[in-house]
């Protein structure tokens, strides 16, 4: 039998050791696919909440838009608390991201992505054309299309790394001798002095906001065009797809058929 999920033919598959998703038959034309496993969904919402908290508090730290109610003496702790929430959220953001990194290797085929293949970039180009309303040969993707995958690599991947490096450096500035301080001591070598690091942190934060708008819009759009339950899939994990759309996995992983080994 051929490779059940045609590694070389789909830009959704990334690595050899991933397993295909659970599939439930709805009727003869339709199947339910368990696309986003629980860790992915938890990551998504924790990440969203952390980014939201970080952005609100971050804007306040950059430009304190309201003052303490108590005037005259420094008895309040507004900035103190806002910074505390910012740092607390930052630790959650980081830990959450590390879990997601682990799940890239442990999860199903939709949890990972591999940029180092020709098909990935070919399909990215087709996706670009798709979003520009041009004629395209973009296949239907049950998970993320490669352009979406790329946006996660750039923003949630590289963007988060920039935020973490610059953020933790700023966080440890008062204690350069501490463990964390020593861990991030080299950050100025890449990002410049304290002012530059602050600038990076502030500007990339806004890039995240632009990403959030585009991400939400394109998810709703996908739901509207494909009618496959994209929006509810991030709550339930399931997408409803036609049998044809899972051509590459259905033969050998449909329940009750000849091969059960991929979802034990």
């Amino acid at each position: 039998m051929a490779n059940p999920y045609h590694l070389d033919e789909s830009s959704e598959s990334a690595f050899k050791n991933e397993y295909p998703p659970k599939i439930e038959k709805v009727n003869n034309e339709t199947v339910k696919i368990y696309v986003w496993e629980l860790p992915v969904r938890i990551f998504h919402w924790v990440n969203a909440a952390a980014i939201f908290a970080l952005m609100i508090t971050g804007i306040y730290i950059g430009n304190p838009f309201f003052d303490s109610m108590i005037q005259g003496e420094a008895s309040g702790f507004i900035m103190g608390w806002v910074r505390y929430i910012h740092f607390f959220s930052a630790f959650i953001f980081t830990a959450n991201l590390l879990v997601r990194l682990y799940w890239t290797f442990a999860g199903n085929k939709y949890a990972s992505s591999n940029l180092f293949r020709k098909i990935f970039w070919k399909d990215t180009w087709e996706s670009v054309k798709f979003y520009l309303f041009l004629k395209n040969k973009k296949p239907h993707f049950v998970g993320h299309n490669p352009l979406a995958q790329l946006s996660y690599w750039v923003v949630i991947g590289v963007g988060s790394i920039i935020m973490i490096l610059t953020g933790y450096y700023l966080y440890t500035e008062p204690q350069p001798e501490s463990f964390l301080g020593k861990l991030f001591q080299w950050v100025p070598v890449i990002f410049g002095d304290s002012f530059d690091i602050r600038s990076w942190h502030h500007l990339v934060a806004w890039a995240f906001m632009a990403f959030v708008v585009a991400h939400i819009y394109l998810s709703i759009r996908e739901d509207y065009l494909s009618k496959n339950g994209t929006m509810s899939s991030i709550f339930t994990g399931y997408k409803t797809e036609s049998k044809d759309s899972i051509e590459d996995i259905k033969d050998e992983s449909m329940p009750g058929e000849k091969n059960d080994k991929y979802y034990m």
Partner: peptide, 28 residues
């Protein structure tokens, strides 16, 4: 202000950020 990395240009990051967000929303 914040400095645009690699340049001498400094900007008000929140104003520019809101503008970028507005442009994204308009594009959407």
């Amino acid at each position: 202000r914040a400095k645009v990395p690699g340049t001498q240009i400094t900007i008000n990051p929140d104003k520019v950020g809101v503008a970028v967000l507005g442009a994204t929303a308009a594009g959407v």
